[in-house]
Design a protein around this nucleic acid. Structure first.
Length: 424
DNA sequence: TCTGGGGTCCTAGGACCC
DNA sequence: TCTGGGGTCCTAGGACCC
């Protein structure tokens, strides 16, 4: 029997909720979390939203409001958020084997309705158990397609009477419900398509649902068409249950300050390559090409701008960090120009294939095995003793270019030195 | 002074081949 | 001087997501 019901689970204000789990003083207080480099606001508690702090706005623009209202500010602490996310997902996976880990704070579950007589009650128990076991509040939207489940969840967030769960699998007035959803709030409709649709007098999810299919296919391709059909309760976006290996791996950061000297950019690029290669090995892959880019600050129009990057194809696919660093620095030295104030650099690994695909065919087989075991040992030590216990000299010691992280909370769950201390 | 960092999929068009 | 049609593969770019 086919699963025909989807639940969308969304952690409420996830990063803010994570901070609250280990810091009860933050309960009922306004909290915001900053992006990497303490640049923008990326998460807000309800209280902070109520004070008018917008999503994605640069920190310096709202710093006054934040200070005046004594809003708590945190740098992002992805180590902590990643760990709590894993805990939430673990709890969710007890409810059904059919689960998609959609993002750090969202999941889709699917199940068969005939085994459940009351979906709303089921949703409530999901919510209660996740909260009890992890301390993270979630909301639940239930529908016949993933797109509609997302929409149901949006209603949950706007309407406290729903108590965190909204089941629209047999909603009697679906059109009236969808009329309340602006077209740009539909999952899969971004700013460009929203503009196009509004120009054509398609203003709500209801309008989009009832639009001519051929027009959609023509203007928005098959992706747009799928979204349209999903609003008609025809499920065409499947649950992605298997975690696929990444096809591209990026590591890039803005610098904490301007960098003008080659040797400092070299340190950064070396560090980012190290990080990307770790991710690559984590999924047991190797990469066949590598892209390096550097950028000046494009927000400063009056400053001299230079933004460039270059790709290199590797002779043999590899995940061996020293080799990748060598290639990355080779590119960097080709593209680097003196006389500019650089603000960001990055490394992107692509042409990714499973490591097992090359090992057999490699004539330098034994050499490969040796290098692999070296990297395995390094990864193992860094896992146990913390990131960068063993690092590469080319990444520098002082790392003056490092991003700002002025307000980071402790990594309560993953670092021995940062466990929660309780005085008794 | 200060503006994030990742990813995915699809499509159009060019290169190349027979 | 004329100069087909169909297929594949690759890449860049555009849309989207969190």
């Amino acid at each position: 029997m086919r699963n025909n019901i989807f639940a969308h689970i969304d952690c409420n204000n996830f990063y803010a909720s994570c901070e609250r789990v280990f810091n009860p003083l933050l309960r009922n207080k306004p909290v915001v979390i900053l992006s990497n480099n303490d640049g923008c606001i990326v998460a807000r508690s309800e209280e902070a939203k109520a004070l008018g702090i917008g999503m994605g706005v640069p920190y310096f623009k709202v710093k006054n409001v934040i200070d005046q209202n004594k809003i708590f500010v945190f740098s992002s602490n992805y180590t902590l958020y990643g760990d709590l996310s894993e805990r939430v997902m673990n709890v969710l996976s007890n409810f059904t084997p059919n689960i998609e880990y959609y993002s750090i704070d969202e999941a889709f579950l699917s199940f068969n309705k005939i085994y459940l007589n009351n979906l709303t009650d089921y949703g409530k128990s999901i919510k209660e158990i996740v909260l009890k076991n992890t301390g993270i509040p979630v909301s639940v939207g239930i529908a016949k397609t993933k797109t509609l489940a997302k929409i149901a969840n949006e209603f949950v967030k706007k309407n406290s009477k729903l108590n965190g769960v909204f089941d629209i699998t047999n909603f009697p007035k679906m059109d009236r419900l969808l009329q309340q959803v602006p077209v740009h709030d539909i999952w899969g409709i971004g700013s460009q398509y929203a503009k196009l649709l509004m120009k054509n007098h398609v203003l709500s999810a209801c309008d989009f649902k009832n639009i001519d299919e051929h027009w959609v296919k023509n203007k928005m391709g098959v992706v747009g068409l799928r979204t349209c059909l999903e609003l008609r309760e025809i499920s065409c976006i499947n649950l992605e249950e298997t975690i696929k290996a990444k096809k591209g791996i990026m590591s890039s950061r803005s610098f904490g300050r301007y960098v003008t000297e080659l040797d400092e950019v070299e340190e950064a690029v070396s560090q980012y390559t190290t990080r990307a290669a770790e991710k690559l090995r984590m999924q047991n892959s190797v990469c066949g090409s590598l892209y390096v880019f550097i950028q000046t600050n494009h927000h400063k129009l009056h400053e001299k701008q230079y933004s460039t990057g270059r790709t290199i194809s590797l002779q043999e696919p590899t995940s061996y960090t020293p080799e990748l660093i060598k290639e990355a620095l080779y590119i960097l030295r080709k593209i680097f120009k003196k006389g500019y104030k650089y603000i960001k650099a990055g490394v992107y690994l692509s042409s990714i294939i499973p490591g097992s695909d090359i090992q057999l065919s490699m004539y330098k087989n034994t050499e490969h095995t040796k290098l692999n075991s070296v990297m395995k040992a390094v990864d193992g030590l860094n896992l146990i003793w913390g990131r960068d216990t063993i690092k590469f000299a080319s990444s520098g010691i002082e790392q003056k270019w490092k991003m700002n992280m002025c307000y980071r909370s402790n990594r309560y769950t993953t670092n021995w030195d940062e466990l929660l201390m309780i005085r008794i």
